[in-house]
Write a protein that binds this DNA or RNA. Structure first.
Lengths: 213, 213, 213, 213
DNA sequence: AATGAATGAGGCTTCATTCAT
DNA sequence: CATGAATGAAGCCTCATTCAT
């Protein structure tokens, strides 16, 4: 009797339920911010009710953490795939790397970045984990490429690869967030493509071996 | 004895009270985040009680807004003073500008930046005003300097001054925030001076006229 | 034992919960006044806690509005039923109408009237809606009966039916409130039945066609 | 020195200060309601500051009480003066009495009545005192006149003078309040003069000795 | 597993009242 | 007397979390 009921429900809801919840959660969190989001909203977005969330997650914080991990995994998966087997000159690899890292110019992407930026006080652990597995990982990869270029003579030996990589990553991430989410501040917008390309160009130009001599 | 206690309270009631409240508020907001801060904490930090805040400010949000404006005014005051009468070559002016903008390497500075970064969802108006009067203003000044340099032949004519300025400002702001507040993520720290100088160097190198010819 | 306690709580959770809350709310509001009533008291009266109220009502004001509407609906329901199919002479209909309108001589009735009288400044919208759906509706019905009587020659043709109806309704409503709630002012009490009957008698006498000629 | 300052202030503020405060208080209380009124508003209306009120009155409640007593004294003063030496037939005296009691058709009058109506829960003592010294006093005077008329044969011997007087007073008071303060409820307005006159007419007609015989 | 009513701690805001000046 | 900054109790409302069904 009760099993009949249950089965009916389950027909339209396979075991992917947790994933669906995570997706819904990230969507709402990213749109409205962590503190602004009521669990009820997440539930509604996922088509369930509040209580259901507690079957899968301890509490709001864990839901956020898992949602972000889920997102990061996919994002980095894409980037790693794009970099697979890259072998050319350092400048080309750097360009490709940055391009693939910032290719996804969708709203969701920027919403997530804004969300994460606001997490430092609300959920410091999540903030730190994101930094470690996101931006830092990215700039280390880039720094390594620059180091390669320095060794091969393609780049100036005295270049500060660490700072260059950091500037590129933090600058671009932040520009994406700012220009998009403060969209109606006059003059803040700039073309996505231009931003990425000019930034890479500037960086590569700055890494060139000294002009004279 | 009891008169001593009483006197203590009344000794600290100068005409500068609003300023004191703003300072205290910014201190607490920056340390704990806007949402995490109870007005009672702000009051305690200022040595008054909750209700006193409402003599000077409509509500929590206005308190935040005013505290930030107060802070911004001082910060930009310092920068403008530093830039007063600067006339040298563009590269020198750019360097001085960035140095003065990021000179304040104190904790308070970075706490405030982190606070602001988390305001997008909590208090969008404040977030936007900050962007418009802070970072944007800064990168516009820098972009203007670069344009000067392009006109005088000091910089490459095809350089994207807009993007260079943005990258420098957003990159440095974000690095300050990240490296400091995620301080125990291993490997995220970098010397403040090195960060600033290397960033400027990279940027200036990237703006040099083409090497060959 | 502990299970008993628990059960007690859960036994009273029928689908009629909103109604229960409305009843409890009206009871407390009417007893203590709108401003004097803490939502916690309403909740306690209903056997729930503060928060539960917010499942059903937006805020204190809506709770009041709904409680009053709920009450008015019942009150007018009773009156309409009493008037169903009345066809006799105007004087009889008027008498029956007023009697049925003021039959409920219970405390609750008078408490509610007092409550409503104090709402003009606190919640003007509710006050106005009550006026429009309560007293005004009542005196319009009465005025219509008097007009009937005038047409049939039962009442003086020059009688001011509008004012008569208003005087009757407002006078009686107010007397109920005053005499009851200022009960210990010496000499303010008067028998309910006598008040109603004498008022009707006076009114009907005043509506009689002129004596002489 | 300090006496100089004091004198300056006193030049424009004679000893009538308490009266001014009472007037200002009644004005604000009547306009906004007792609970809605902040002492600061009263002070502003009187051109002083909050603290000053506490030099003359214990607290908010006493301020209200005194303001109302002050008002009542004047109102009844006027009425008694109007009734001085009235000697004609009962019907004429009744008419004159009611007319003089309700002559003041000003806004202030109605505001005060509304204020008082809402005081039952907020400040029961004031409410009761008002009832005793206002409406009750009025209807007793009127009942006495009617009794005179009964004795002289001008009115029906079986008339209920008590109820007639009450109905007249409460009905008119309430109509003034309702029609004015619910002014935008369509159809609630009626001419002041017509209301008073028709009410008196109806009452007198109802008091006539029986028509036939 | 899912529901959703209920809980209750937490925080913002109001304002009568006090009191040093 | 007058000021007005400061107090602090009170009350509304929110929402993460629980739990009987």
């Amino acid at each position: 009797m009760s099993s009949t009921k249950r089965t009916l429900k389950w027909e339209r809801r396979p075991e992917a339920r947790p994933q669906e919840l995570l997706d819904a959660a990230l969507r709402v969190f990213a749109t409205r911010g962590y503190r602004n989001t009521r669990l009820e909203e997440v539930a509604a977005e996922a088509g369930v009710t509040k209580g259901a969330l507690y079957h899968y997650f301890e509490n709001k914080e864990e839901l956020l953490l898992r949602a972000i991990q889920h997102y990061q995994a996919r994002a980095f998966g894409r980037m790693e795939e794009a970099m697979r087997g890259e072998r050319g000159p350092a400048s080309a690899r750097l360009r490709r790397m940055v391009e693939s890292a910032f290719s996804g110019n969708d709203d969701a992407r920027r919403d997530v970045l804004l969300l994460l930026n606001g997490l430092a006080h609300a959920v410091p652990e999540v903030y730190r984990e994101w930094l470690a597995t996101g931006p830092m990982k990215a700039w280390r990869l880039i720094a390594a490429i620059i180091e390669d270029g320095k060794k091969s003579g393609e780049f100036r030996a005295d270049a500060d690869s660490e700072v260059a990589a950091r500037l590129l990553v933090s600058g671009l991430v932040t520009q994406l967030v700012w220009q998009y989410h403060a969209g109606d501040v006059p003059g803040i917008r700039i073309g996505h493509r231009r931003l990425i390309q000019s930034a890479i160009d500037l960086c590569l130009a700055g890494l060139q071996p000294a002009a004279s001599t």
